[in-house]
Design a protein around this nucleic acid. Structure first.
Lengths: 197, 197
DNA sequence: GTTGAAAGTTCTCTTAAAGTACTCTATTAT
DNA sequence: ATAATAGAGTACTTTAAGAGAACTTTCAAC
């Protein structure tokens, strides 16, 4: 079981290694986390080694390695660049990265598997996962999970029109549906979408 | 048999752990349940441990675990169910979970930001992120990152035809392109796709 | 090889936060 | 009446976290 700081330091080291290919020095960790004492950092690095999350290869400088499962536990992937039809991958000079934890995860969030094609023009296909943030309120244009008459749930784009609410499927072959506001309960807003192949 | 408060506290802790990946402190439980006395909380947490519903790992802060459940990581969201147009959310009886780490992350993977609409019919829109697994080989039907003449990179669906390779955009308004196999280098296969709103 | 800066190691001291162990009180059901 | 449940509060112990000094080891420039 890791303490808060241990977790932070482990993430910091993991991130540094994926970016730079070698481990940071204690001072560099300190700079990144705004901790002034090398001794403090060392204490927690050592305890991470004791707990098996890190390994030290010999006694070299920058000789830290991620141990075993740790290397698979990454929630971070390098963002290698942009790809466009017909052009080479545009290298991104600074090492950008994507943190899926921050992106998709958080309190009050859950996942729904989408069935049907009603949002296909928004790039949400049958079988996709959508990440939903629980909330009762939403703005025009948000993709929402809406409960109609407390019995039917649906995924649609929202538009408010006075006392009426329009639920718009992003699908050219389907028509918007209009309800009086009191028949609709917003259950959440779609904040992300994911698909595996 | 649990008393009312014990039940509430256990639910509160379970919820906190699934959302935040680690257990709450006694004070945090108190805030969530609007109970002012740390001592009271402690009494009921202790009785939950005695009754076997919780475990304490060592004497650490935030060291509570759900008994029987494996402690899992932050990359997990509850899969609440399936949502289809016009039907209530189909509750999934067992607590299913989505682990984005296992899904998307792994060695040899990186992320590309997609530019352009060439894969729009596959639900990959301009600005989406695709997760790519590095490989030199791919099968028919895979969505690949292909390098043409070592100069242009592109995201297309692959079809091999003898000594020729067809790169097919999933976009009705674009035409497939055919190359001789020696002009094409496969750089990776798309294994996932994600989007944030 | 020598040497000095950079990196790592081992301490001690300090503070704030978290957990533990009580006592006292109120309510409620049997 | 009595036991179980629920809550407030006080006092104490333990842990997490940070600063910093003093020391040893590593590495690279000379």
């Amino acid at each position: 079981m890791l303490t808060g700081l241990e977790e932070k330091i482990l993430q910091c080291i993991t991130r540094y290694i994926t970016q730079n290919g070698r481990s940071p020095t204690l001072d560099e960790i300190g700079q990144l986390l705004e901790i002034k004492s090398k001794g403090t950092i060392h204490r927690y690095v050592k305890s991470l080694i004791d707990k098996g999350h890190l390994q030290r290869s010999g006694r070299n400088w920058r000789g830290l390695r991620l141990a075993g499962e740790q290397s698979r536990r990454l929630t971070i992937l390098p963002l290698a660049g942009r790809i466009a039809a017909g052009k080479p991958i545009e290298a991104i000079s600074e090492q950008y990265e994507i943190n899926f934890s921050e992106m998709l995860l958080g309190p009050g969030r859950y996942v729904l598997e989408v069935q049907g094609d009603s949002m296909i023009d928004a790039g949400i296909l049958d079988g996709d996962l959508v990440i939903v943030r629980e909330t009762q309120t939403a703005d025009n244009g948000d993709i929402v999970v809406a409960l109609i008459d407390n019995s039917e749930a649906t995924l649609k784009r929202l538009r408010k029109k006075g006392k009426q609410i329009e639920l718009i499927p992003d699908n050219r072959s389907m028509d918007p549906m209009v309800y009086s506001a009191d028949r609709i309960n917003i259950q959440g807003i779609v904040v992300g979408q994911a698909r595996m192949y």
